[in-house]
Design a protein around this nucleic acid. Structure first.
Lengths: 333, 333
DNA sequence: GCGGCTGGTGCAAACGATTGTAGCCCCTTT
DNA sequence: AAAGGGGCTACAATCGTTTGCACCAGCCGC
């Protein structure tokens, strides 16, 4: 089953390959006689012709493929993001080249993609000050950041509204009567870390509450637990903790228990992201819910708009919601 | 920053492009004078030359890319699998083209990949009787199945040893004194459904226990819960349930509670796969643990072996382990 | 009746690499 | 001294498309 080439179609339709090419091509179809177009299309259909993206790419330097860089594919966050991107692009015929910046360094990941002439790039791996992103902004294919963004760079980003998200969590806790509210922040190198921290700080100022913050060295359970332990020791009067993400929140659970106190009744805890099964841990964790699949789809949409030369917003903020569960209810545990 | 082409290197080194090509190419390097090789390599280095995979692919019809088809990227199973594949291939310079067979049909997903001349294919989407896989076996690029396999087809597969996995679960339950053991099976269309069911049936025969099985219509919580409810009503004497996967197991949790009984003390439950956070649900679920990242890496390895023309096993069975947790301990809940 | 325009098609040169073959030079051998 | 051969390099075709340009016939207008 050898590949059917444009030449085959042209021969079958008894025209020159250039004519066949024009007939097949939406944009140039107008210049060839309708009758000829019909004949070519029929033969192409009959033979099952499918244009070779490689050959076309060589000539046009467009590959109908876009590259995406994910920092850590094992993180359950990124599955839905990739799914959203893939679905958003598939409709327009784009394929997805994926690289994880764990197996390469980020710049190698990007280079391996640009080497392959991707038409666009979606990065989920951006850090706050990211030389790779800066270079891409100057020269490189159209790029969209997703989930995280980079400061002082003119590249569109599709991210969650962290300020709103933190406000949802804090307001909920305040409503439940808490005034000594702590925050376990994520790493400062990522916008999701620093933005949530700043949002929290701003709200505490507004409410006139004391600022009780500890930074975790990573967005995982372990760092969350140690940071929370520090905070709980330093400020035993705390009654609620806003965690920078779900895993840190689970770390907080652990620290709270180590301190001989109870999650929910003694100390309310909120997570962020609302990953799967967070409603099944004990107690079910209240969390800011981010629609990651939608975020991916939106990023695809923005990138497609750029590729079509439409203008598009430089930043898209997605509104999170709050999933209230028992970790912030005083009732039982 | 225009692309540095082979011609640029050739000019700089004052040789013909064909000579430059041979000098750059490991395999053909021998035929060109060492001194010339040195000069070409130096210029290539200096100019930052990177061969264009597109152009090379057109000529050699090898693209150094492999395609992977995932049924559902949002399923937390597949993140680690993809991560493993990606890491395994990256070392050899291969890139990963990923498509989800949710946005296309499976055959479209495969076709979009073969159109792009992928050198190989890894399918996580195979069903027991899968026409797409059968077609691929006859004519198509080298293909490896991962996680699931297709019957009566000569394509290597890297899968977990479901028979061993189920045995680990059942033996553990028997050891704990259970004799009335039920099974909630997954869909029969997938090898992971039918194989676990058959393994379970075989063990019950061997032990001489009664066969208590209900099939769930899907690998999710809902179908698991309804199937488990049926089983519990039909056979109230049951004291343990082996679920075909974790989510079905969580469905079993729900059904057990709806029946007014307790998971762990009244009814022991085991899951399968051991997804993240399964140790944090209440009670922590005993589960057969499958190393999905390793499975992905192994699939990559097998595919690379085929691409290098080494012979490779037709089926690779990965040994699961059992993570024992409180859902099978009678002690507390 | 001739020049020019226009609609339709073919020609050929790209895109950037790989690779079979031809050719050159120089050395060896008879 | 001529022929042969080995080492090295250049030439040119090729992969499948796209696309600027030339070409040609027919038609219109003057």
């Amino acid at each position: 089953m050898d590949r059917v080439t444009l030449r085959d179609v042209a021969q079958a339709a008894e025209v020159h390959v250039s004519t066949a090419s024009r007939a097949l091509n939406e944009a140039t179809r107008a210049v060839v006689k309708p009758e000829t177009v019909k004949r070519v299309l029929e033969e192409a259909e009959k033979l099952g012709y499918r244009p070779d993206p490689i050959a076309r790419g060589l000539r046009t330097s467009q590959t109908l493929s876009i590259g995406i860089v994910i920092p850590d594919l094992e993180n359950p966050l990124f599955g839905p993001i990739v799914a959203g991107i893939e679905a958003g692009l598939a409709a327009d015929g784009y394929s997805v080249l994926i690289t994880a910046s764990t197996s390469h360094r980020e710049d190698e990941a990007v280079r391996s993609l640009t080497d392959r002439h991707v038409d666009g790039l979606i990065l989920a791996s951006a850090t706050l000050a990211d030389p790779v992103v800066e270079r891409l902004a100057k020269s490189g294919p159209p790029t969209v950041l997703v989930n995280r963004f980079t400061e002082n760079v003119d590249i569109p980003a599709v991210i969650g509204d962290d300020q709103l998200g933190i406000r949802l969590a804090v307001d909920h806790l305040v409503e439940m009567g808490h005034t000594n509210i702590g925050h376990i922040a994520g790493p400062d190198q990522m916008s999701t870390g620093i933005d949530r921290r700043r949002a929290f700080e701003g709200l505490m100022r507004d409410y006139g509450y004391r600022l009780l913050v500890e930074g975790a060295t990573g967005f995982q359970i372990e760092p969350g637990a140690t940071a929370a332990a520090r905070l709980l020791e330093r400020e035993p009067s705390i009654t609620a903790i806003v965690a920078a993400n779900d895993l840190i929140g689970l770390g907080v659970y652990r620290a709270v228990r180590s301190a001989g106190r109870m999650v929910g009744s003694d100390i309310a805890v909120t997570g962020y992201n609302d990953v799967a099964m967070l409603d099944l841990v004990q107690p079910a964790m209240t969390a800011v819910h981010v629609a990651y699949r939608h975020m991916g789809a939106k990023a695809a949409e923005v990138l497609l708009a750029i590729l079509r030369d439409e203008d598009s917003p430089t930043t898209t903020l997605l509104e999170p919601t709050l999933a209230v569960r028992s970790s912030t209810q005083t009732t039982s545990g």
